[in-house]
Nucleic acid binder design. Structure first.
Lengths: 395, 395
DNA sequence: TAATTGTTAGCCAGATTGCCAATCACGTCG
DNA sequence: CGACGTGATTGGCAATCTGGCTAACAATTA
């Protein structure tokens, strides 16, 4: 139900933003391409491009030769018109992985800087740490402060956008109310916060196995916990308080109460994987090591993968029954270490347990999925803000 | 990302459709009201209304007196511009309820006809039965065949819109591929098919307890089966093959394999309710009778409701963990019979089991929720089609 | 030569502002 | 108590302005 109404000014703004949207999507387009895409006339396209070029949002990036007539100019969105920054924060935990990974991308999506830091948030204020990281990103890439239009934060927790507060975080200091607005004020940018698993799903949709799917669920098997992201037609399901996908806490039904109350975290969380490894004589001190060891020598791991798969299938069966996704993606360090062996085991286990058939796949993203997803999310935020600002301001 | 581009014709169409959208939503508006809502100038509003009136979509329904100046004309969408029909089909089963309930509503949403029929689909072709019902609706309301723009069908099953086929239906004859297109061709209307529980959720959103909620889950406790509808911001989640919410088939985790594989249907389905009633000495031959008896004399039912609630909570805990809805609505005959007693029991059971807190409520719709939801769904389809046709045809 | 690119000129559709007549409520005066 | 003036409001008309379109044209390259 479009309720947009207005005068010719609205029209001009709409046409400009439509053209910009196409340029952002396609990358490089000639006037003739835009004419076909927007169904506008040549003079109008010229006028729109003239205005967008004047505003610094669009530039000529090349010429299309080899055909009769003058070489057509190829227009593209100006990479330096706006930047998006992404910061992925995680608890250091037992692994030696850096606790802050950050990257900066220009409007076209090319990564211009990336840094990794170990930050001890017990002794460092998140606010100053994040501001410093973003400043360092800017220096590395040589970008002015005003250039960054959006900073996307990824944390292992949920974000309540109404209260502007991060909840269910383990990293010290991040749960403080008022933190996010303060950072936004200090950086003078819009700031977005999202769950790390959600952001991994964004990356999966843009560059992974879920590019052409109308909806999918991503099960994240991490070193400690597990998480679920739900993508419905490209938008993520967050739930009332950002708690959608917290299946780690999903209680499992016990027919008689002699069993103590167990949830899915007890079944497939890091500790459970470790214990399962011990039971089957698979070596390794961390869940990742255990799964890697089992995957490299599947014959010696015995029933390790089938049993792990059976447990994963318990959670996936519930997810599939509720959501009926066309694709289920296994991601996270444990899933990636398990690889094809784990995938095969989970596929058979789910086929046995779940009422509906869903394709199951392992992520194809080798890089830091959370960071890439944060970058993608920040980028789309920047693009949408640009398009909206054209529609509103140029009135 | 709006990519709409065009010339002044698009503008006119947009303004007309915006005005119509407001008129459909608000009911009766003066020119001044529309001026405020659309932010268009007086001459433009006049022109738009003139065109809409000429097209027969809008009429003057009254005059606004009691204020200085001439009595302002009150415009409203013409009720007779289009009609929507709704047909709810269910298996007769053990109850004596009619198997086909149908209604007809005009564009403003007032019900103009309703009929109920018992149809034996073992000996009657669904196609002819449905065509007859719609014809009867038309006669009762005195509406021409072309007046009906949309027929909404509600069935206990799922609809695959790509294959245009109904799946997982118990009612004989409805699973036949090609049935829906044939009915659409015979009636010469658009036809929509949806799951009955989904439609009940539509009604709940429009006239029930879920009017102001950003998303909710509706658990349907029927005479036989159970179902789940998921509303996210007003749109229903259907899943890849229309199988979202089929939690009846959700398998339950058994810690050891000595228990046979049980799913949620075994736990809270009609048969389970009957058995539970027997165990607690609650009289009744159908699940509805059992629950009604228990609700009228809660003291004599003992642990019936707490135990039933515990079982319901098993399913709801999974739903809440996956979706984090801000509201969970209990609906369907069994839930309505259980009333406040059941609600209280379920609330405490869920609070104990589920990781997140969700408000739980019982439906407030006394009428046939599925039928009303189908009517609402058909009506919005008609309205959107009207608005879209203005935007496209008046070019 | 033919096809293609991009510009300029004139035209047209549609929305806006400003102006005006008509209408009604309300207070005041005869 | 009734008639009348005042002010607010409605709705129409004319003039203006913005913006996109068609058509013609110059320029360029296979």
């Amino acid at each position: 139900m479009t309720r947009l109404a207005g005068s010719s000014k609205l029209l001009r703004a709409m046409n400009a933003s439509a053209a910009l949207a196409h340029l952002l999507d396609a990358g490089g387009l000639t006037r003739a391409d835009l004419r076909r895409l927007t169904e506008l006339s040549t003079p109008t396209i010229s006028e729109v491009l003239r205005r967008l070029t004047e505003a610094g949002l669009v530039t000529v990036v090349g010429y299309h030769s080899g055909r009769p007539g003058p070489n057509a100019e190829i227009y593209a969105a100006n990479p330096d018109a706006a930047y998006a920054a992404a910061v992925s924060v995680r608890d250091i935990g037992t692994s030696g992985a850096p606790s802050v990974v950050a990257a900066l991308a220009d409007l076209t999506g090319t990564e211009r800087a990336r840094i990794e830091r170990r930050v001890d948030f017990l002794h460092t204020d998140p606010k100053t740490a994040l501001i410093d990281v973003v400043a360092e990103l800017r220096e590395t890439a040589g970008v002015a402060a005003e250039g960054i239009h959006h900073v996307q934060l990824g944390v292992a927790g949920s974000y309540d956008p109404r209260a502007e507060t991060i909840r269910h975080v383990d990293v010290p200091g991040f749960a403080r109310p008022g933190l996010v607005p303060e950072i936004a004020a200090a950086l003078a940018t819009r700031i977005g916060v999202d769950n790390d698993v959600n952001l991994a799903a964004v990356a999966e949709r843009r560059r992974g196995v879920a590019t052409d799917v109308d909806g999918f669920a991503l099960l994240w098997l991490g070193q400690e916990g597990l998480g679920l992201a739900i993508d419905i037609g490209g938008t993520l399901l967050r739930g009332a308080r950002g708690g959608a996908g917290e299946i780690g806490y999903m209680p499992l039904y016990a027919p008689d109460s002699t069993h103590r109350k167990v949830d899915l975290q007890d079944l497939v969380g890091g500790a459970a994987v470790l214990a399962l490894g011990r039971d089957h004589g698979v070596p390794g001190r961390t869940p990742l090591e255990v799964v890697t060891a089992a995957a490299t020598e599947p014959d010696r791991a015995g029933e390790f993968f089938p049993q792990l798969a059976d447990r994963i299938a318990v959670g996936l069966a519930a997810v599939i029954a509720v959501l009926d996704p066309s694709l289920v993606v296994l991601a996270g360090p444990v899933a990636q270490a398990g690889g094809e062996t784990l995938l095969a085991a989970v596929t058979t286990a789910v086929r046995r347990a779940a009422p509906l058939e869903s394709t199951i796949a392992v992520t194809t993203i080798d890089d830091d999925a959370v960071l890439l997803g944060a970058l993608d999310a920040g980028l789309t935020a920047v693009r949408e803000a640009l398009i909206a600002s054209i529609r509103d301001n140029q009135a």
